[in-house]
């Protein structure tokens, strides 16, 4: 069982007046597509960075497969978690196919070069994300949305049991948003890969995710099945926005109301 266990995780940088994460506990269990939700600054990215060992804590509050994250060698962790960062400055001169191929690194010893199997994985990953036609292009010459898709392909190419995505659809048009979310859902259903995705679009979450965890100011406000988390009262409490929640073919549609109570005083 390769669960990611978070137990009483608190994090407060020296310069911060308040903790960014406050006693967070949750088990991200295998085989799900879990949405990591919360307003800006609620600690979502910080939580992911703990998983990736980018923030190293002395405690073993984060365990993967029963073993504390800080005890993993970088290459071993690279074989378990793939990460799609929120944004990328992107001035790399590498060709798209080389960027994707970089994700084979955790499986290679120093002088081992990539073999036919690796090439196949690279091509497959690019095809799944629909960027095979860009393979010879320089990464830095791509548009924001294309870059984002290259990074998603790179994460697939890492062939890890877990993929963590930080707002993977923020630069994508509607068609590509759907394409990416659908592809991720298929990965979960067919390849038994587990996905954690930071998102702001509840409609997408309701359509493609099955689990959700909602953070507010570093605290877990709600967790569990998506429909139990995305409730009108909970959302009003966390986002200070009223939602109309409609039913369409068994899926929920979320519509934010402009006249909801505290919109003008959000900055308090």
């Amino acid at each position: 069982m390769k669960n990611i266990d978070v137990k009483d995780l608190s994090y407060q940088p020296k310069t911060a007046p308040k903790p960014i994460l406050d006693q967070v506990s949750y088990t991200f269990s295998e085989g799900h597509m879990t949405a990591l939700l919360g307003p800006n600054g609620s600690g979502k990215t910080t939580l992911l960075r703990h998983f990736l060992s980018q923030i190293r804590v002395s405690s073993d509050a984060v365990r993967i497969d029963g073993k504390a994250v800080r005890d993993y060698q970088p290459k071993a962790l690279g074989q378990i978690l793939a990460w799609v960062p929120q944004s990328h400055s992107g001035d790399s001169a590498f060709a798209v196919e080389d960027v994707v191929q970089m994700a084979r690194y955790p499986y290679k010893s120093t002088w081992e070069s990539d073999n036919a199997e690796d090439e196949k994985i690279v091509t497959e990953a690019m095809e799944r994300v629909g960027i095979a036609h860009l393979r010879k292009r320089q990464f830095q010459s791509l548009s924001g949305g294309e870059k984002q898709r290259v990074l998603i392909a790179r994460a697939l190419c890492q062939t890890t049991p877990w993929i963590l995505l930080d707002e993977p659809t923020s630069n994508l048009d509607v068609k590509h948003q759907i394409q990416i979310m659908k592809m991720l859902r298929e990965m979960v259903d067919e390849k038994k890969i587990s996905v954690i995705v930071v998102m702001h679009d509840f409609n997408m979450v309701a359509r493609y995710c099955d689990q959700a965890i909602l953070l507010k100011k570093g605290n877990v406000v709600a967790k569990g099945a998506v429909e139990d988390v995305l409730k009108r009262e909970i959302l009003r409490d966390v986002y200070e926005v009223d939602f109309d929640i409609l039913d369409k073919d068994g899926k929920k549609i979320y519509f934010a109301r402009e006249d909801s109570g505290n919109c003008d005083t959000m900055g308090e």
């Binding site: 060698q73 970088p74 071993a76 978690l81 990328h88 400055s89 690194y105």
Partner: peptide
């Protein structure tokens, strides 16, 4: 030359390189 691959990955930033398994 030993670090060739790692240096390639580091051009994408320390955090991304680390997420792919590099001991940055």
């Amino acid at each position: 030359l030993l670090l060739g691959r790692e240096l390639d990955l580091i051009t994408f930033g320390d955090q991304e390189a680390q997420s792919m398994g590099v001991s940055v």
